[in-house]
Simulated scan of single mutants.
Amino acid sequence: MAVDTPPTDTRLGRLVRAPMHEARVCWSFTWGDLSATVLPATTFAIAAWNSTGLPAHSLPTVVAKCLVYFWLYIYTFNLSNQLIGVDEDRINKPHRPLVTGLITPTGARRRLLLVTAAFVIVGALFGVLLWTCLWVAAWTLHNHLGWARTAWGKNAAMVAGTIAQLAAAWQIVTPLTGTAWTWILTIAVPLGVLVSLQDLRDLAGDAAIGRRTAGMVMGEKNSRRFFSVAFALYPVVTYLALYRYAPMTAQCVGAIAGILSLAIAYRVVRLDDRRSDNTTYMVYTYWYCITLASAVFAVG
């Protein structure tokens, strides 16, 4: 007597696999940038919370809001950025999902529309719609209107994006203050130049598609010298603007960030292969996180 074999693609199976697949897609687009977005922005929101005297039981809500908002922040950007960068990624980052075929460009475009809509809705609900719209405008200009192909356009978009990130992080918790703006502008404006450090990893792909990043414009050796000097001097800027009158704990955490900044200054000229450049960029993201962590102790 024949036994019926259950179908391999049941409705229940599809219902289980679909969210798992979406989680995998989301992770594949975002994991490499969490230390430059979700972690530091959430840390700055904790600094804002610490400045208000809110009860301890309100902190998990702040963190949860930030995890949702800033995951959408980076997911929208990376969907958009990788959609227009497939040819470059085949050279520089062949592990990315559009290159490996995890999803199709059509699927990425559909997700971009849905995730951007979700991001705008969440931004409105959290009271940071202005900064949400600024970020969407910044990545639209950067990715789809050609700003990423020029050094000035790329850097201007990143300044706007950093302001949008940090202002939203603070405003999710409490209204922006003069102290908050001092931190935001001291970090965001120089970062518009310093963030170009990441382009040293991608010179081959940038040359292949005709992108004119800072490294391409100045030449690799000159750009490395420039970043070395800039990261060596930046701890002086942060001390004068942020730490000179801050509590000792904030100064000590800031000193750790300063040591990392000096390490970047050394690495960028002494360790110049692609693997080292990628590690140097990761040190940069840790420096960014620790700098913002110092705000928890400076503004409380």
Score class of each variant (00 low, 15 high):
V236P: 00
Y286A: 10
L166D: 00
H144Y: 12
Y288Q: 10
R109C: 00
L15K: 02
F44C: 06
G219D: 00
L79H: 07
A156E: 04
P190R: 10
G219Q: 00
K93Q: 07
R201V: 10
I74M: 07
E220G: 10
L54V: 06
G205V: 03
H57Q: 12
A47E: 00
A45T: 07
E220D: 15
V128K: 02
D89T: 10
Y245F: 11
A168F: 07
I172E: 01
I163N: 02
G192D: 08
F231E: 01
G300H: 13
A263T: 15
D89Q: 07
F231V: 04
I259A: 15
A64C: 05
L191S: 11
T291S: 12
W152A: 15
T238K: 08
I74D: 03
F70R: 05
A148C: 12
G127V: 11
A137E: 01
F119W: 07
A265S: 14
P247V: 07
V268S: 03
H142F: 14
L240P: 03
R275T: 14
Y286D: 00
P94K: 14
R270H: 15
V253I: 15
S35W: 14
Y239K: 08
L203T: 05
T182Q: 13
E22M: 06
A257P: 01
G32W: 09
W135P: 01
R111C: 05
T279F: 12
T150G: 02
L260C: 09
F44K: 04
T52G: 01
L72S: 02
V38W: 04
V68W: 11
W152G: 02
W31T: 10
T61D: 07
T182C: 09
L271N: 04
H57D: 14
I91W: 06
A230W: 10
Y243T: 04
R244W: 11
I91R: 04
V99D: 11
I163K: 07
T8Q: 14
L271Y: 08
L98Y: 10
K221I: 13
I91N: 08
D206P: 06
A169W: 06
V269Q: 06
L262T: 09
T106N: 10
Q82K: 13
L185D: 03
P55C: 05
A117E: 00
M282H: 03
G53M: 12
V86L: 03
L130A: 13
L114V: 12
L145D: 03
D9F: 14
S196Y: 04
L15P: 00
V296Q: 04
W147Y: 15
G192Q: 05
R275Q: 11
R11L: 15
M1K: 14
L98E: 04
I84S: 12
G300S: 13
T186G: 05
A36Q: 07
L113C: 11
W131I: 01
T249H: 04
A156V: 14
V268H: 04
N155Q: 10
L83G: 09
S276H: 12
Y266V: 13
H95F: 15
L141T: 08
L197H: 04
P40I: 07
T285G: 02
P60W: 13
S51F: 08
T174L: 00
R149V: 05
G107P: 05
T238I: 12
T285S: 10
L197G: 01
